[in-house]
Design a protein around this nucleic acid. Structure first.
Length: 264
DNA sequence: ACCCCTGTTCGGCG
DNA sequence: CCGCCGAACAGGGG
């Protein structure tokens, strides 16, 4: 499920446990979710305090005392939650960090997500090598255009899903952005005119900011007139024209768009 | 039973 | 070596 704003929402769930010690660690060490890392390292998090958390795109980073870093990616079905101190871990709770007053729970049924553990003074490499946040000052129209140029033959829809260039943008946000920018999803990324690039850049930032505001805080609903409310309906219509949306697989992902707003 | 899925990664191909 | 595509991953829900 989670894209930019949902990821940030889930990250905040564990904030309740900031500054408090981990008293016990339960995990499913053999699960795919720990691929590429050593789950045994996590045992040593017992006795350490959760110090801070942040998110970047679809990635989250939790910092613990003792120079421990925990990275989490939620994949398609991952979520973070808080349970009571006597919480009983469920089938897909692959990592549960107990504190005196609560349990910090990571659940992921499909295990497309990932947990990474790192110990050391420096930020882990997998964190520092992430792309430039789409809401930052560094994400300029020029910066975006140069990225699209490097993937010039790729359709704009799958280009928006490249996390190196658009960290946090996922399937629904990409469709929302293209609909608002009035760009057909199959347009080659490298062939947008200056005015189109400007609209795209504006809407990338608008949709990201607005989603963070509405969803990131309390998982509220996206604004009423947004495409997201129509895109998964069987008979979804353009919020603006009320005509049926087109739906096709583009770059392996279901894509919905309005043929009138977004002409080829 | 069958088909869908807000995500990444890897192998094959050009 | 680079970039793109489809399949695979694993499970739940309609």
């Amino acid at each position: 499920m989670p894209e930019l704003a949902e990821v940030d929402f889930y990250r905040r769930q564990w904030d309740e446990g900031l500054r408090e010690k981990i008293t016990q660690v339960q995990l499913h060490a053999e699960k795919r979710i720990f691929r590429g890392t050593n789950p045994r390292l996590l045992e040593a998090v017992r006795g350490q305090r959760l110090q801070s958390s942040e998110s970047a795109g679809k990635q989250m980073l939790f910092r613990f005392s003792g120079e421990f870093w925990l990275g989490i990616h939620l994949g398609m079905t991952g979520k973070l939650s808080v349970g009571p101190r006597d919480y009983t871990p469920q089938k897909h709770d692959h990592l549960v960090l107990f504190q005196t007053k609560r349990a910090l729970v990571f659940n992921d049924a499909r295990q497309f997500g990932r947990v990474l553990i790192h110990q050391g003074k420096e930020l882990p490499e997998w964190w520092s090598s992430l792309g430039t946040s789409v809401t930052s000052d560094a994400f300029t129209q020029k910066f975006m255009a140069e990225f699209l140029e490097r993937h010039g033959r790729l359709a704009i829809k799958p280009a928006l899903l490249l996390q190196k260039g658009f960290p946090g943008i996922g399937n629904w946000m990409a469709d929302e952005i293209l609909w608002r920018a009035e760009l057909a999803p199959r347009r080659p990324a490298g062939k947008l005119k200056p005015a189109e690039l400007k609209r795209l850049w504006k809407e990338v930032r608008f949709v990201a900011r607005e989603a963070l505001k509405k969803i990131g805080k309390d998982f509220g609903d996206p604004p009423l007139h947004w495409l997201i409310h129509e895109r998964w309906k069987r008979d979804g219509v353009c919020p603006k024209h009320k005509i049926p949306l087109r739906k096709e697989t583009i770059g392996g992902r279901t894509t919905a768009w309005c043929p009138r707003c977004q002409p080829s």
